[in-house]
Every structure is written in structure tokens, then in C-alpha cells.
């Protein structure tokens, strides 16, 4: 096998496994970032530079957001490992799902085989039909523009959900507080965070 692909695959697997295995959440977040960056190079080698660029910038924001969350909540994973029964159940589920996945993967064509798909039409029509040299952009914005509209709506919904969840107080009076915020937007003093959380944030900054 191609040693470069094999090395990158090993990097991605190691990063993902480490992210799940490490008990320190900050280390786990950084490990998943490593896996994502390795995946971006893999995308580039597989002839998908658009995806590679997107993966890199998305990974940066994901890691940033997660580090913020870890800084807010403390970086030690709480709780002891699961009970043996739960581990057994998990192993059984993994066996069933893995078997089904293996059967499905066995039915896939070998890697790199040419397949008759609409892609020939897309590739041939992207320049004359849409005026784009980049066939991916032609598909995203022109041939499948409705899809993109829908996906933009999904992003809007996800971000709106995040805004609502992050703003609400968890119990009533949301409308009143919004009004108060609109009245004095800039100089609103930030309420004190719990002292323990502040200490943890400082500690994490000192480490980093």
C-alpha cells in the first residue's frame, strides 16, 4: 500500500483513538484536532482540494470552540469507567454494527474503480453549462442550488439554536432580559462567574 496514505491513516486513527481514550479533556480536543488535520491532507491526496481547505478551517473553529467549552467546564473527565456489563453490551453492539458494516463494505467496488455516475455529465457541463472551471462549485451553486439553499437553512437553524440555548436563562423572563440588554448593550457589566470556574480557566491558561 501507499506508505503516505498508510501513515496518514495511522495518524487519523491514533488521533481519534487518543481523543476518546484520554481522560484529560483538553488533550482529547487537541488529539481530535490532529486527526482532523491528517484527514484534511488525506482529502487533498484523494483529489479533493475543496474539501481539504474546508476541513482545515472547520477543524480550527471546532477545536477553538471545544477548548472554550473545556476552559469553562474544567478539563478532567468525571466519573469512573463503565461497569463490566455496560462494556460487554457495548462490545456486543460494536460486533453487530461492525459485522453489518463489514458486509456493506464488502459490497463496495474496489478503491479507485471508475463508476458510471452522473458525474460525467457534471464534469462535461460545468464549464459550458455553468461557466465554472471548478466542477464542485458548479454543482454546489448551480446544478444543485436548491440543495445549497436547504443546507444554508440548516446552518441558520443550527446557529439560531445555539444562540437561543446560549442566551436563555433556563427559566422564564427571557423577553424581559432581552429588552434590558437592548437598552444598555455596550457597558453591561458581566456578572461574576463562579470562583471555581474562574480558577480553572486561569489554570488552563497558565498551562497553555
Amino acid at each position: 500500500m501507499d506508505p503516505v496514505l498508510a501513515g496518514l491513516a495511522a495518524l487519523v486513527v491514533l488521533g481519534s483513538a487518543a481523543a476518546l481514550a484520554m481522560r484529560n479533556l483538553l488533550s482529547a480536543v487537541i488529539a481530535v484536532g490532529i486527526a482532523g488535520m491528517g484527514l484534511a491532507i488525506l482529502f487533498l491526496l484523494l483529489g479533493a482540494p475543496d474539501i481539504a481547505i474546508t476541513q482545515v478551517v472547520v477543524e480550527v473553529i471546532v477545536v477553538t470552540v471545544m477548548i472554550r467549552a473545556v476552559a469553562r467546564t474544567g478539563d478532567e473527565e468525571e466519573g469512573r469507567p463503565r461497569s463490566p456489563a455496560a462494556i460487554l453490551a457495548g462490545a456486543g453492539a460494536a460486533l453487530v454494527i461492525g459485522g453489518a458494516a463489514l458486509a456493506a463494505f464488502a459490497a463496495l467496488p474496489p478503491l479507485g474503480a471508475p463508476r458510471p455516475t452522473p458525474s460525467f455529465w457534471y464534469l462535461a457541463e460545468s464549464l459550458p453549462g455553468a461557466g465554472a472551471a471548478n466542477a464542485v462549485t458548479a454543482i454546489v451553486l448551480d446544478f444543485r442550488g436548491y440543495d445549497t439553499l436547504g443546507e444554508a437553512t440548516v446552518i441558520l437553524a443550527a446557529v439560531a439554536g445555539a444562540l437561543v440555548v446560549a442566551r436563555g436563562s433556563g427559566g422564564g423572563a427571557a423577553g424581559e432580559r432581552d429588552g434590558a440588554e437592548a437598552a444598555e448593550p455596550a457597558e453591561a457589566p458581566a456578572p461574576a462567574a463562579p470562583a471555581a470556574a474562574r480558577g480553572r480557566e486561569e489554570a488552563i491558561r497558565a498551562q497553555g
Binding site: I51, V62, M66, V140, I155, V159, G161, A162
Partner: peptide, 20 residues
Amino acid sequence: PLPQALVLTSIVIGLGVTML
């Protein structure tokens, strides 16, 4: 290019979902 076009948006949606 077709799977790439789908994955392109899927990655960004994944980011939005992660934020949520």
C-alpha cells in the same frame, strides 16, 4: 465531483451542529 459537493456542505453543517 458529486460526493465532494455533498461533503463540502456536510462539513460546514457539522460545524454548526457541533456549536449547537
